[in-house]
Amino acid sequence: MSDTEKHVILTIPMHPDMELAAAKTASVLAELMDFGEGEVEEIQLAIIETCINAFEHSQSDDQEVHIDFLLKDDELQFKVTDRGVGISPDTLDGRRLLGSPGIHTDLRKRGRGLQIIKTLMDEVDIESSPNGTTVSVIKRKRRTEET
């Protein structure tokens, strides 16, 4: 790790609203890195969705989510890891299908956390095995004139 890189490690229990602890930590780190206000909100939302996916799908015995933030000059990385049974991206993509079949199927099929993460972040990578899942996310700073 270079002098300009810093790690922050956080473990949260899989308990309702604990994703807010991750979001708050991410918010503080992003603000320290001088991310713009909108970017901070995007990072918060992305880590919330990543944590909720782990809460809902991991089935881990320890019921914990481990988050490793890596602060670089121009980007914030975070890896969200659970020690659960593993999950396919397809499952992540369809985690909440709403209501009975009806008029707005295009609305219903879009209720997806991973879609939000991919849209708001610059890079998203999922590694999953029967021993657990790690979702790695990178958010790069926008150039000043874009913020």
Binding site: E19, A23, E41, Q44, L45, I48, E49, I52, R96, L98, G99, G102, I103, H104, L107, R108, G111, R112, G113, I116
Partner: peptide
């Protein structure tokens, strides 16, 4: 302050109920 995907899904349900 924040809206997660489950919150959005519930908003979609309200939209559907109104459209009906």
């Amino acid at each position: 302050t924040l809206i997660n995907s489950i919150g959005i899904s519930i908003l979609i349900e309200i939209i559907e109920a109104l459209h009906e």
